[in-house]
Design a protein around this nucleic acid. Structure first.
Lengths: 205, 205, 205, 205
DNA sequence: GATGAATGAGTTTTCATTCAT
DNA sequence: AATGAATGAAAACTCATTCAT
């Protein structure tokens, strides 16, 4: 009896997971309005009914994914930061991360855009989103600060400003990249960051 | 007789203009799907029928606005470029332009995002959009090149790369700005650009 | 002054005539619902406004044409009848008439079908239509009667019944003819009629 | 479990059947354009949504019914033919069939007219329709041929021509019958056919 | 009389959501 | 938990008709 219950609960979780994964793909491919509950459910191998057993509404699902992705994004940044040893190495790592995300996850990037638009319009979502950004900036800023101190390096930009610039450039370049992958050289992200942050170091080279 | 006809034609033009203006606002506020033909027409002070006398479909209207905005954007860049006298002055001008657009035209910026998302999904639109970007890059690149020559200034980045960076940063910062206007300092755009492009000149100061 | 007024009235009549002619074609080609006031007016070289200066509504126009065509049809039958000299000759004439109408006036035949359907549904129109049919039957019947008397010819069918059969066969064959012109031999109309009415005469051949 | 699923499927079938039946009536009464999806669904006791769960479009429904009726028509003719023993008996059977259809199924007859008009305008439908007619003619022709051989009877008309005449007369008389049931004697169909086909046999009587 | 811009009721169609099984 | 039939609100779009010029 106990096992059966466990199995059932596990199955419930599994269904939910499958629905979420399907939703990520469908939302990314078709946008919030283009994605119908039917398509999402079918893509996950279930019926509409199953969907509504797991989520109250299409919007709730969307917000659930939004939150998931937000957390994943902050996590990723945290991981990138952990690996740094010097400012130059930090930029290299962040550049590689950008490259890998941009090339592999067109889907996620489009979903990200979808979220941005949603966030720009929905007060409550905008709030959460802005919280996540603040958090990201704080973490990046702190890491940069430590590196600057250890490298005895100065800049006209505050560490917060540098963090903002890093994230802005990432988003901005991702947009162009997805509009036409051939136009903009992918390695420009790291190159620009290096140019902006490491002029003195370069001179010493 | 001539005056009568002219008046009618003028009225037609006026109606079209009003519909377009209304559409810009409604699309920006509510997005492509949130904006209904009904809302647009009503906002302009007309009926749905009037709308369809001027546009074949909601999508046609959207694309009409898209094209308008694209042209306006390239024009604006052209104007910004015309005013430059030195690289430093050029950055200042582009920064001021960004500031004014960001502060005055929340509407247009959100519309811009809407277009981006649309472009990412629609092959044909993506094509046009990418053409516009290429054109913008070319113009900016050329202007920077001239300034660099006259100022005998060098950079690790090609003028094309600089142009891409300028536009990417603009888009990326605009996004953050609209998600939370209080978080990111607006003047950061110019500041970052200056840091990236003018390290040597600064040193001479 | 007098001349101008006359001209204006003539022009009015001319416009009305052009609108009616255009309507006949458009109704026949597209049916009552497929034909829009816009299309009709444009086909006549006028605007919708002109249309409504001449007809109260689309339906009124339709009924006007209906009446016109009904009268024309009775007229045609009258003419056919006038030309007869013998029963055999009468059938020949009616056959030729059918042939010419079927081949030349696909348009009118389809309009005729449109009217039939309309008549089947609209009490008042059905009434008029049925009056026209009765009139046609009467005229044909009378003509046949005279011919029979003069030829000392008898039939199991009354002259009224013969008239009904003639008209029914005409409609029925026209339908098949327009569905597929290649299937049914056009001369079958006369042939069948001859077979029905002239067995004795044929025997004498 | 099995029963549950069966019940649901059965209900689906039942709903579809009810929608089709309602559609036949509404189309017949109001024509293709007069019949709205709303009216059809309501007449069947369902919502518009239910309608679209069963049919892609109003036109698809219409064509579904068209095909159904075409098949039924050919079937009926087949049955009529099966029952014949002699040419005279054959005509009697076909006459009775006509009478029963005309009196009982005003609805179906009007639907038939609706189909005819539709067929006259739509290439693809016209094609199917003409195929059905050819088939009907073939079957009738064959039956007549056998009867003629067995009765050693000859006619100026080929058996194909006789078949065409039979069907044409049926349609033609049905039209007049529905425009005014009182005008044309219903038994005229059989009478005319007898007169056309059986002159010699009659004489021998 | 003629124009054609504007209206708005009416139509088809979609889809998030509910609910009986 | 899952199914999928049914709902109904909402949207895009059409077109007969009106009316100011």
């Amino acid at each position: 009896m106990v096992r059966r219950r466990l199995t059932q609960e596990e199955r419930k979780k599994e269904t939910r997971k499958l629905l979420l994964e399907a939703a990520v793909e469908i939302f990314a491919q078709m946008g919030f309005y283009g994605a119908t509950v039917d398509k999402i459910a079918e893509h996950a191998g279930f019926s509409k009914g199953a969907f509504y057993a797991h989520f109250h509404s299409k919007e709730e699902l969307f917000l659930t994914i939004l939150e998931q992705q937000m957390e994943a994004h902050v996590d990723n940044i945290r991981n990138v930061i952990k690996q740094h040893q010097s400012l130059s190495h930090f930029i290299e790592t962040i550049d590689k991360y950008f490259l890998s995300v941009a090339q592999k996850n067109r889907t996620l990037s489009m979903l990200n855009m979808e979220f941005l638009l949603y966030a720009m319009r929905e007060e409550s979502v905008r709030h959460k989103w802005s919280g996540m950004i603040t958090e990201s900036v704080k973490q990046i800023s702190k890491a940069i600060n430590e590196l600057m101190l250890s490298e005895n390096y100065e800049s006209d930009l505050s560490t917060d400003e540098i963090a903002w610039t890093i994230l802005s450039l990432e988003n901005g370049m991702a947009i162009f990249y997805y509009i036409n992958q051939d136009l903009m050289p992918l390695n420009l992200y790291g190159k620009s960051l290096r140019n902006m942050l490491l002029p003195h170091i370069k001179e010493e080279n």
